[in-house]
Design a protein around this nucleic acid. Structure first.
Lengths: 243, 243
DNA sequence: GAGTACGAAATCGTATACGAAGAGTAGGCA
DNA sequence: TGCCTACTCTTCGTATACGATTTCGTACTC
């Protein structure tokens, strides 16, 4: 869906250049949790592990830094970016902005067939509500939105949306894991969004609603956490790293 | 080997690492127009020119690629990003989105002193209307907006705004050069924006107006160019590279 | 016993070297 | 004469090597 790789065989990135290989491999390990947040990324170790030299690894790390997945310090090294709740907030806020715009810009280019596909995914999500699986739900949620914003004609905005989702994936902090109640509302809002598009609502309405939809998810997260943190009071990031 | 001193006198980037030096140097040359759009960036040549090895240059180029200032092709090389009118459109559209949001998010944090500074810059712009100098006007325009969005609390969005302005600078395609009539309206809209902020208008109103303000500039550009291109009909990019 | 200075290990940053992939050009063949 | 092929040349991609910087451990002093 939002895989930029030309063709991935099954799990190995298998990109043309070793830099891209290294990029894909390290990124995957971050997203998978093999490299937990705060983990130090040593160039030589990764290079040996991947069977390449440090040069491509270095380049991969810098790319990941540009995407915000790792933090980098000169002459010190890189560490996997932390899962600061503030960071999540910023990312979600940014995503609400650019995804709302991308969805609105996509809307005129979306035909009935695409709407049907999105509706099918949304029905899967609805079915997923019983026997709730946060991971699966989150993945479907991403698929749903990707269908709707992927036709955005402005490649810059589309790229920003992809980056946002990427960062969310690296943060590994799904709202639906903490606030499953939000899932049901989310599905309903999806249905409403589809009906807006089907009725040919104007761009501003769609943008506003798409943005609100994401903001609502963020709000659910925030209220949940402010409550949780006030209750537990200690070890405020214990809730994140149980991936 | 002529070693560049770590401490730079005044205009050199003065970065600690050679990668950053190279990044700053190449970027400056692109923005200044020393490397015109379409110019091929050969690693070895730049490296020799800067007195460093190709490795830092390579990294600098990749960073510039990530920012969109240069395009890169594997095993072929990098070229300074073109000034495709379409690219300008996309960039301005994206900027209208993120800058509008950044301005709206900044608004609650802006006090009277900041508003006064912005107003002063706007008056400079108004004075600049006689004896019109597009370059100076464009610079003041950037200053004006920077004052208003710089307090945006979301660093991601703020970063996107900076990137957008960066890319605009690299495109070197100022609307005010082609459509000086737009300048007067722009100043008035700035004044209105300031009054909105002074009156404590809600975020949505400010965002909407800031976005519209930029979109209007873009529209002026587009109508000008569609007219110009229809008239000249040939060599549609002649208007760009007289920088 | 605590703080500081020195030294060693680890790791990054950069230079140099060589192999690989594309682009351009000249030559041959239809 | 036009097109295809082989070759060379430029330029990038990656490996290896070495110097620079930081960090951590240890010994010494107050």
């Amino acid at each position: 869906m939002l895989m930029a790789e030309p063709v991935a065989t099954d799990d190995a990135p298998a990109a043309g250049s070793k830099s891209q290989q290294a990029y894909g491999a390290v990124k995957q390990r971050i997203v998978d949790g093999a490299y937990p947040p705060g983990h130090r990324l040593v160039l030589a170790a990764i290079a040996q592990d991947l069977g390449v030299s440090v040069v491509p690894v270095r380049e991969a790390i810098r790319r990941l830094e540009a995407e915000g997945l790792v933090t980098f310090q000169r002459n010190v090294g890189a560490t996997v970016a932390g899962i600061d709740p503030t960071e999540y907030l910023y990312t979600m806020q940014t995503l609400s902005l650019v995804e709302g715009a991308a969805t609105a810009l996509s809307a005129p280019l979306i035909d009935a067939e695409v709407l049907d596909r999105a509706a099918a995914v949304n029905e899967e999500m609805r079915a997923c509500l019983q026997d709730f699986d946060p991971l699966r739900f989150t993945r479907l949620n991403q698929d749903f939105h990707a269908i709707l914003f992927e036709r955005c004609p402005n490649p810059h905005i589309l790229d920003l949306v992809h980056r946002g989702w990427n960062r969310l994936a690296s943060l590994r902090s799904s709202t639906f894991r903490f606030v499953p109640e939000r899932a049901r509302d989310s599905v309903e809002e999806h249905a409403h969004l589809l009906s807006l598009m089907a009725d040919g609502a104007d761009a501003d309405t769609i943008e506003r609603f798409a943005r609100l939809h994401r903001s609502a998810t963020l709000d659910a997260y925030l209220t949940h956490f402010s409550a949780t943190e006030a209750a537990t009071d200690a070890d405020p990031d214990a809730a994140h790293d149980h991936g």
